[in-house]
């Protein structure tokens, strides 16, 4: 917001808190017409509540009908919750405020879940650094792709998302909600995995070999969710990944790189990720209309 000022004295005369900043007149005009967008709208709301001078200016730039509507909006906005830091940042970055709210409501972005992921990654990185065997940090590379898969799995579905039953009968398309949450979880999990990778500089680029498997597992899990449900699908995919690594371990020389983390293995992961994403897109309507496997509505408030 621009640094527009009303006067040079820099203080208020109404007994309210002194302030040197005031809402620009253009913003006030947009405000009364209901055209001021967040986050400028939030700044104007907060400021108008405390600044008699800007309220006077608001009256002078408004016709009476528009002014009444403006007061009503202000009244409503003063009741509204202030967005949290993540939501505020998302809106600053240009994300629509309603999408930002849906993003930050993802169960997997709760502090408890993020704390668990962070602790797990720290332990894995410490272990990988302490047990230097071979060219790749196997334990870290095995675990890191599972985190976004698990994060997405706990973001959608009955018994996991407390508002699932309300969400499934809402007009918002189930696939869109799933994608919004997937983007949120992937961004956070890949970010945390990336930080963990930076903590393993001795392995160089080998430590980044989790990325394509992570995308492949997540996309496959989602694609299968439309048919197998939000518990069985990611469980099978996670089990398949662990089984694949066990087979690779058993058939590979102790110091050699496991197949999924070789260049060829990475290529396969990339191809699987793309194929699964296409299948997921083709199955998008199943998230909106299918009976099985989404019928297990359970008592989520028992806990």
């Amino acid at each position: 917001m621009s640094d527009d000022r009303h006067g040079s004295d820099g203080s208020e005369t109404s007994g309210e808190s002194p302030t040197t900043w005031h809402v620009p007149e253009d913003d006030l005009r947009a405000y009364v017409q209901g055209e001021l967008a967040a986050p400028r709208l939030w700044s104007a709301d907060t400021h108008l509540a405390a600044c008699a001078r800007c309220r006077q200016t608001l009256a002078s730039v408004s016709d009476p009908v528009a002014l009444d509507a403006g007061w009503e909006r202000l009244d409503a906005e003063l009741d509204a919750p202030r967005p949290g830091p993540v939501e505020w940042l998302l809106v600053r970055l240009g994300v629509a405020d309603h999408t930002a709210r849906l993003l930050t409501a993802s169960p997997a972005l709760r502090r408890s879940w993020l704390g668990s992921i962070g602790a797990l990654l720290v332990m894995t990185v410490v272990a990988a650094d302490a047990v230097r065997a071979g060219a790749t940090p196997i334990l870290f590379l095995a675990l890191a792709p599972l985190l976004p898969l698990a994060g997405v799995a706990v973001s959608y579905g009955p018994g996991i998302d407390p508002t699932y039953e309300m969400a499934v009968v809402s007009p918002l398309h189930g696939f869109r909600l799933l994608m919004i949450r997937t983007v949120a979880v992937l961004t956070v999990c890949l970010g945390l995995n990336g930080l963990a990778t930076l903590a393993l500089p001795a392995y160089g680029l080998h430590a980044l070999a989790w990325l394509l498997p992570a995308l492949a597992l997540t996309a496959t899990g989602l694609a299968l969710t439309s048919r197998l449900g939000p518990v069985l699908a990611p469980s099978l995919v996670a089990g398949g990944w662990v089984g694949l690594l066990a087979v690779a371990r058993a058939t590979t020389e102790p110091d050699a790189t496991l197949a999924p983390f070789t260049a060829a293995g990475q290529g396969v992961s990339g191809a699987v990720a793309v194929l699964a994403a296409v299948l997921l897109y083709l199955a998008r309507d199943r998230f909106d209309a299918s009976r099985l496997p989404f019928t297990d509505f359970t008592d989520r408030n028992a806990a």
């Binding site: 209901g34 967040a38 709208l41 909006r73 409503a76 906005e77 009741d79 509204a80 919750p81 629509a96 405020d97 309603h98 709210r101 849906l102 409501a105 169960p107 709760r110 998302d161 407390p162 508002t163 699932y164 039953e165 309300m166 969400a167 809402s170 007009p171 918002l172 909600l177 989520r300 408030n301």
Partner: peptide
């Protein structure tokens, strides 16, 4: 089911978004 950390306003606001009320005001 509720997001327990939401306030009453935030929760109803969240459901309103699910109901396609995208204009914040």
């Amino acid at each position: 089911g509720f997001h327990q950390d939401f306030s009453a306003f935030e929760f109803v606001d969240y459901v309103a978004i699910l109901k396609e009320l995208t204009d914040r005001t």
